[in-house]
Nucleic acid binder design. Sequence first.
DNA 1: TTGTAGGCGTTATCAG
DNA 2: CTGATAACGCCTACAA
Lengths: 340, 340
Amino acid sequence: MTNSPTLKEVAQRAGVHVTTASRALNPATSSLVNPATMRRVQAAARELRYQPNAMARGLKTARSMSVGVLIPDLTNPLFPPIVRGIEDVLAAAGYTTLIANTDNDPDRQVKLFDTLRARQVDGLVVATAHREDGLFIDAHRAGTRIVLVNRRVDHSDIPSVTGDDHDGIAMAVRHLIDLGHTRIAHVAGPQDTSTGRGRLRAYRQALDDAGMTLDPGLVVAAKGFTELEGARATRAMLDAGKVPTAVVAANDMIALGCLDVFGERRLRCPQHISLVGFNDMPFIDRLTPPLSTVRVPHYQIGAEAARMLLDRFGNPDLPTKSITLPATLVLRESTAPPSR
Amino acid sequence: MTNSPTLKEVAQRAGVHVTTASRALNPATSSLVNPATMRRVQAAARELRYQPNAMARGLKTARSMSVGVLIPDLTNPLFPPIVRGIEDVLAAAGYTTLIANTDNDPDRQVKLFDTLRARQVDGLVVATAHREDGLFIDAHRAGTRIVLVNRRVDHSDIPSVTGDDHDGIAMAVRHLIDLGHTRIAHVAGPQDTSTGRGRLRAYRQALDDAGMTLDPGLVVAAKGFTELEGARATRAMLDAGKVPTAVVAANDMIALGCLDVFGERRLRCPQHISLVGFNDMPFIDRLTPPLSTVRVPHYQIGAEAARMLLDRFGNPDLPTKSITLPATLVLRESTAPPSR
DNA sequence: TTGTAGGCGTTATCAG
DNA sequence: CTGATAACGCCTACAA
C-alpha cells in the first residue's frame, strides 16, 4: 500500500528517539514515558495515520498475532457462523484470522498448513480433522497450538469444542419413536470423521435404549457430508428394497440429498416419510418442508474455540480440555407420525 | 508454532552459507547455484520441513504477499462464493487472503482497514463500498491497490468487477410484463449503494421502455439488503394500500422479507403475487416457492477481481477498468400471470 | 559459484 | 525518563 509512515518518521516529527516513540505508542510500556512527550508522540502518530508494521513487530516479538482457520469449504453454510464466532473473539483480542479452504483434500490441507506455518500463525483452529489425522496429532505433539472444532481426533488430547452429537441424535431418534416410527433409517456421514462415526453410534445406541432391533439394511453411509453423497447413499438404500418410514440424516447437507431422492421416488415428506437433519444450518428452515433438525450452536463453538486458543496463548501449559456444547432438537415440518 | 527452523539452520545442515541457501531455495535465483549444492540445500530444507518466515521476507521485500477482503458479513450466503473466487485465484499466485467483516458499520470499516494496513496487505478487494465512500476514494488516490466487487463508487476511477444490474433488472421487469403484469412494484435496496440505486433506475427505465407509467406508491426502499428491512419496506407499501401483482426485489435477502410479509397477509406466491429476486444466492432455489431471480456469477466476480488486482501488482500503471459480468434471468416458481 | 555486509521496522536490553 | 545498540530472519548488492 504505497509508503506507510514508519516509527522513525513519527519519532522525528515528535522530536524524540525511535525507542521513545515505540514506548509511547505501546500500551504496555507507555507508563514509562513522560506524559508530555507521550502526547507529542501520539499527536504525530495520529497526524501521519501511523500504523505499526505488523511484520516488523512480528519478526521482533516472534508472534504474528494471527491465527489460521482450516475449514473444508466456506461456501458450505455450516462454516460461516463458526468462522464468525472465531473472528469476533479473536479480533477483540487483536488477532487476525487467516481462513483456508481444504476442500477435503489431504494434500491441499498439508499445503495450506505449511502456508500458515510460513505466516507464523500463533495457533490454529481446525474444522477439518479426521479421526486419525497424523498432521494435527504430530503438530500438536510438537507444540503447535491447535483447537479442534466440530470434529475430534481419536485417542488424542488435542483440545476441542464440539456440539453434543450423541445427545442430539438421541433426541432425534427418540422423537421419531415417540411419533410411532419403527423403521427408522440412518444415512450416516463419512466414518473417518468423529461426527460421522459418533452419530452412527448414537443412532445405534438410541434404538437399543428403546429396545428396538436394528435392521442393518436401514443404515447407509455417505462418503462425504454433501447433498450428492446423501442422495447417493439414500438411493442405494431404497434400491436395495429397504424403505423406512423415517430417516435420521447425519447432517443437513445429507438431509438435502435425502429430500432430493424422496422427490424422485414420489415419497412425500413428512406424509410418507419423516426426516431429521443435523446442524440447523442457515436457510434449512425455509426448505420445503422446513426441516426438523438438531441445532448446534455454531457461532458459540467458534467463539469458544477462539477463547480456548487465547487461554492457551496466555498459559501454554494449560491442561487440555474438550468442551461439548448442548444440542437442541428443533421440530419443524419434516416429521410426522408414520402413515399406515 | 514453537520454533520453526530458520534458513540458517538449513544452511548449517547443508554445510553452506545462509546466502547460498537463500539462493538455492528461491526459484528466481536458483540458477546461480551449483546443482550439487542445490540438491544438498533442498534436501536439508525438506528434512527440516523448512518454511521461509513470511514476516522476515515481507519486511525485506516490502511485500506481504497478502490481500485484504472487506465484506459486510460472511454469514450472508451471497459472499462466500465471491470470497472463494478471490481466494482460489490469489492462492494460486501465492497470496494469502485476509477476510474482514464490517457488519456495515463505517467505524468498524475504518478500524479494519487500518488493521489491514498494519498487516501491510499488498492490495484490497472491497465489497462494502458506498456510493460516496471517502475511505476508498482517498486510499485509491493515495496509491493503495483496490478493486471493488459488486458495488461501485460514484464518479471515481477505482477499478471494479460487478454483475450487470441494469440488464438483470430489465430482464426481470420484461418477464413480468410479458406475463401480463401491469402493477409491478420495486422493493429497492439502500440508495447509498450503487446496486440499490442502479437497480432502482433500471426498474424505472424498464417500465418506461415498455411504455408503462410508474406509480410512485409502488416503489419503496429498504435501508439495508436484509430480510428484516425487506419485510419492513414491503409492509409499508402494503399498509399504504398499494397492492401490486408483482414485485421485483433489489436482492434475494429482500425478497425473503417480501415472502415473509406475503405470508402474513395471506398473499400466495405466485398465485396472488409474483416475486423476482436478485443474485441467485445459494439455497434460494429451495425456498417455498423456489424463487425466480437474476443470477450473477459471484464466484467469477471474485476470481476476476483477484486477477485484476494481480495484474495491477504486476503493472501498477495499468489503466483503470471496470468489468461487468453478464446476468441471467433464472425462472423458477415464484412468477406467474396475474390472477384476475 | 559462493561469501560478506547491511538493512527492512520494530522492540528488548542496556546505559545514561 | 530517554537514548543508543543490537537483534529478529531474510534478501540483495557487491566483492571475492
